[in-house]
């Protein structure tokens, strides 16, 4: 128990140090220290609509982050959340616009299912390459992100384009209002219940099923897992599918929630922030939830900053990056990531 307390403390310390370093840099650039803190507090909590906005951004971070937790626990560095998120949203959009006169609950259900399946498929492709040929999943999932972004761009600039749109960026048509589960704020009871329910399910899966324990064994030592009769490839495929499913679901929630339409390159870094969220959350479900809210707040503060202070938004992007940097350094030193493929470990 003391061990896990220590880990939580060291992570909090790390976030604190990031704050300190960021403040130092901004102070050296001529900004007042108090501005940084008031900017963050106001932009994420006290300004009108800021708290809601924090939650709105926490939702996709949590969903994708939980997928990252599952993958990382099994030892797979699935960083393709962004692409999986995009193709999920795209498939939900295709279903919703293609069947726009259908009964709303049914369409939303089908659209969500399509998003989940698309996200899984997008993740399973690199997953299969990983377990079958040992292809490095970091590279493949990363590359799949670019393809996902291009799929989105194709849809929003091509077949699903809103012909009356005059904006500089291509956007799709809006889905019917009846399909939406939140208003433009992105927060509603339905959305919160859905996300909370998913978090509980993931927690049960990871902490209260044999599969959850199996994932940890595979992630820590696939060679030993194989000797124990665990089908490491199957576990790998299932975790890849689950990660993708959660990211795809996040895409659907984005569409039926705050988005209502898809814009080329929307929420461009949510999939990567989710990786940091999972790491700051120490790969635990509730830690990830807490980190998602923290980073949701940060995202909100970045958007609100021009309204509440003189501080430029990139100031907080800096903070964000600092946390990401430090947490990655810490994470690498812990070496959750396996040193070699199961096959190598076996013959060594």
């Amino acid at each position: 128990m003391t061990g896990s307390l220590q880990r939580v403390a060291s992570t909090l310390l790390l976030v604190g140090v990031s704050f300190l370093l960021t403040t130092l840099i901004l102070w050296a650039s001529g900004y007042r220290v108090s501005e940084v803190f008031s900017g963050v507090i106001e932009g994420s909590l006290t300004a009108t609509g800021a708290a809601t906005s924090s939650i709105r951004w926490a939702i996709p971070l949590l969903l994708i982050g939980l997928g990252v937790v599952i993958g990382f626990r099994a030892g797979f560095f699935n960083i393709g959340g962004q692409g999986q998120f995009y193709v999920g949203a795209c498939c939900a959009l295709v279903v919703s616009l293609g069947w726009r006169d259908g009964p709303a609950p049914l369409v939303v259900l089908c659209g969500t299912a399509a998003a989940i399946m698309a996200g899984s498929a997008w993740s399973l492709l690199p997953g299969y390459l990983r377990v079958r040929f040992g292809t490095d999943e970091v590279l493949t999932t990363l590359m799949m992100n670019f393809i996902g972004a291009l799929v989105l761009q194709y849809l929003t600039a091509g077949p699903m384009r809103n012909p009356s749109g005059t904006g500089q960026t291509a956007a799709s048509e809006r889905i019917p209002e009846a399909f939406r589960i939140t208003d433009g704020s992105g927060v509603s009871a339905t959305a919160l219940l859905l996300v909370g329910g998913v978090a509980v399910l993931v927690w049960l899966l990871l902490e209260r099923t044999r599969f959850g324990l199996t994932i940890v064994l595979v992630g820590r030592n696939p060679t030993m897992a194989r000797w124990q009769g665990i089908d490491v490839r199957r576990v790998g495929l299932v975790t890849f599918a689950l990660s993708g499913a959660l990211a795809g679901l996040a895409g659907a929630v984005e569409l039926y929630g705050p988005g209502a339409r898809l814009v080329t390159g929307f929420s461009p870094e949510v999939g990567f922030t989710a990786v940091v969220v999972a790491l700051v959350g120490l790969l635990s479900v509730w830690g990830t939830a807490a980190a998602a809210i923290f980073f949701g707040g940060l995202q909100s503060a970045i958007l609100f900053l021009p309204i509440v202070t003189d501080l430029p938004p990139p100031a907080l992007v800096l903070l964000h990056g600092m946390v990401a940097l430090l947490v990655t350094v810490k994470f690498r030193s812990v070496r959750w990531r396996r040193p070699g493929s199961p096959a190598e470990a076996l013959t060594a």
């Binding site: 940890v216 064994l217 820590r220 030592n221 060679t223 030993m224 897992a225 000797w227 076996l346 060594a348």
Partner: peptide, 9 residues
């Protein structure tokens, strides 16, 4: 140590 147990688990 590598096949019989998972050292970090």
């Amino acid at each position: 140590n590598s096949e019989g147990i998972s050292r970090r688990a």
